[in-house]
Design a protein around this nucleic acid. Sequence first.
DNA 1: CACCGATCTGAACGGCGTCAAGATGATCTT
DNA 2: AAGATCATCTTGACGCCGTTCAGATCGGTG
Lengths: 188, 188
Amino acid sequence: MDAARRILENEGPSALSLRAVAREAGVSPAAPYHHFKDKGELLDAVAHVGWDMLGESMTGARARAANLGALMTEIGVSYVQFSQQHPALYRVMYDCSRDKDMLPEGMQDNEDSAYCMVRDTFRKVAGPEVKDDDIELATIAAWCAAHGLAEMSSFKQFDPLKSALGGEEAFLRGVLGHLGMFQASRPA
Amino acid sequence: MDAARRILENEGPSALSLRAVAREAGVSPAAPYHHFKDKGELLDAVAHVGWDMLGESMTGARARAANLGALMTEIGVSYVQFSQQHPALYRVMYDCSRDKDMLPEGMQDNEDSAYCMVRDTFRKVAGPEVKDDDIELATIAAWCAAHGLAEMSSFKQFDPLKSALGGEEAFLRGVLGHLGMFQASRPA
DNA sequence: CACCGATCTGAACGGCGTCAAGATGATCTT
DNA sequence: AAGATCATCTTGACGCCGTTCAGATCGGTG
């Protein structure tokens, strides 16, 4: 698994073959099959590590947030920045999810998962009169928006706008600012 | 290319090999190389057709919209529904974009592209005092949100919520309703 | 007719995921 | 200490993949 992460960081997702992992680890191509059922299971394990890392990133952002209003923005920024710092890992994480048509099992119940953290934040910001379904919808909306931005923020088309706004992070905050839920008071 | 689209629809993206396309078309594995430089170029061509189809879908939604306030919602719904009706094609479209780190060339200038359509709609809704950069940011935000939702709307985790809300489309409208820009007056 | 360009074929190369059969070596049992 | 057990690894093979290249086919042009 260390070998897999090394290849992912150095050569990107397209170079991540089971045989390459075995080479990097210094074993024969068949060796991994004694630890994982198939390639997908190895990728699942790598992705799991990624989700943990993302959770820590977001927890850190929550701790850094100045006030309740800025909380969601900070979490969103840290989410996208994680995807920019580990683009290959982020892709593996979502490829695995898409293959199984679901986010990692238990992510919606595990108290300190990234997903629950966002939902709890909404719960806290919204107040008790808001229905649970609405909290869930807001969480999903925020997650989708952050994921979309994570996948597209590296597109070259946005480079002019990025420099016009003064850098990558300003761009991120600008986009998130247009997504209702990421700001207590959003610009008209 | 017809063969490629056929395979995509019937067997999914993972079955879309150059050799399979050649088999489906009834030619030798090397034949496609006289029409496309490599596999990527064939996929680009297929993706291009996909973007055209998506553009038509969204144009149709714009025509159907009852009023200006509902315009963005209708466009967003039709975007996600397109991805649900052609999941394999949608994946190819974005895989190609990601490989080149950009949306299809000219999409930002071509007057009747999907992207320009969204931007022009924002331009119309916003009024002339809003800065161009803000229009661009709103367009990107909407696009990212729609793309994220398109990729995640099929996740099994959301099934309970979907039926609680009364179906797929109600779910989509619910999520989009939480994303500021998709409604003139969004719920508190 | 001879020529040419477009189109296709057949065979080959290396890389891939996967599997079955067997080797090696540590640990546990008696 | 001797033998059994188990996890781990290797070797070698299979079929599929993307790609290349040397040649076959064939319709149209001079």
